[in-house]
């Protein structure tokens, strides 16, 4: 695994003075992603927070080429980029599709599924703030049970889609989950993905202080609590074989997890949400754990 010192010595790919909210973890996530992948990268970015925070024309805070594209089209535009590189015999440049959860889990799902089924050569990172943060925090397909958004003012009813498992069913060379609070884990996963051909998918939990309503300085802390409470499970699958990442391994035992309440207590989106909804969230988490650990057992 890459060390913190190594990460720190990699060139800075994000230029200060961008338009992200103070404490934004998606800018942090892309900073890590581009540190991991280097300078020979072409990105496609659909409508999402990154399409705004990269900065307005004529300047950009991202130091690699970026193609901004329509909401549903991150994966398919990346397929085109990848197809053109292939047509031109370029085997070196990495194609990175970088999209939010709305653009991945919802409107862009068909396009990701298509690119994955074709095994087009790219790394697709869905950075998830669990809502349509860019348009003012509406419910997305990744919004967890009970979470309050502007379109679920009483709390989200029902369960989110697990895009990572959906992608896992596409028989891909690499699928993983990550969190912006654990850069070493994320960067190691990206670098592993970069060595593989085909479609690689990473789901990156990116806590959003604006959408989740917690103080900006707690961005890293909240992300860690997501993992420590078991709400976000870190795993990876190489050629379909699911394995819990070390950071989540110890939380396989529910007794070792921090209480969900501790993860939620600083999040305004859960303030005043009824016990039944919190219970539904816990049930969802437990269910996810049973799926992942079962699949991990099969993989052994």
């Amino acid at each position: 695994m890459v060390t913190t010192k190594e990460i720190l010595r990699l060139p800075e790919p994000i230029l200060a003075g961008h338009a992200a909210c103070a404490g934004c973890s998606s800018s942090l996530g892309l900073r890590y992603a581009l540190k991991a992948l280097g300078e020979d990268v072409i990105m496609s970015v659909p409508a999402c927070c990154t399409s705004v925070w990269q900065g307005p024309y004529p300047k950009s805070s991202i130091s690699v080429p970026v193609l901004n594209i329509a909401f549903a089209a991150a994966a398919s535009a990346a397929s085109g980029i990848s197809g053109a590189l292939q047509a031109k015999g370029n085997k070196d440049t990495t194609v990175l599709a970088w999209a939010g959860d709305g653009g991945s889990v919802d409107i862009g799902l068909a396009a990701i599924s298509g690119a994955a089924e074709r095994n087009d050569n790219m790394i697709y990172v869905c950075y998830s703030n669990e809502s349509y943060s860019n348009t003012g925090v509406q419910k997305s397909g990744a919004t967890p049970p009970g979470a309050r958004t502007t379109t679920t003012p009483l709390g989200r009813v029902g369960s989110p889609k697990d895009i990572s498992l959906i992608m896992w069913t596409h028989n891909l060379p690499y699928v993983a989950t990550a969190c912006t609070s654990y850069p070493r884990d994320f960067i190691t996963k990206l670098q592993k993905a970069q060595t593989m051909d085909g479609f690689k998918f990473i789901y990156l939990l990116a806590p959003c202080c604006v959408g989740w309503k917690f103080p900006a300085e707690k961005t890293i802390e909240i992300g860690k609590l997501a993992v420590e409470s078991g709400a976000h499970i870190l795993w990876e699958a190489v050629n379909g074989d699911i394995k819990l990442s070390n950071l989540s391994k110890k939380y396989e035992d529910p007794a070792k997890r921090k209480p969900l309440a501790e993860y939620l207590k600083d999040q305004g989106r859960y303030k005043g949400i009824g016990e039944d909804m919190i219970k539904a969230y816990q049930t969802y988490i437990d269910h996810q754990w049973s799926i992942i650990t079962s699949l991990a057992k099969i993989s052994q």
Partner: peptide, 18 residues
């Protein structure tokens, strides 16, 4: 075309937001 060049301060001196 809409070519934006990498530069610091794409959103200006964001220190003013502090």
């Amino acid at each position: 075309t809409w070519n934006s060049k990498p530069a610091k301060g794409s959103a200006g001196k964001t220190g003013l937001w502090r």
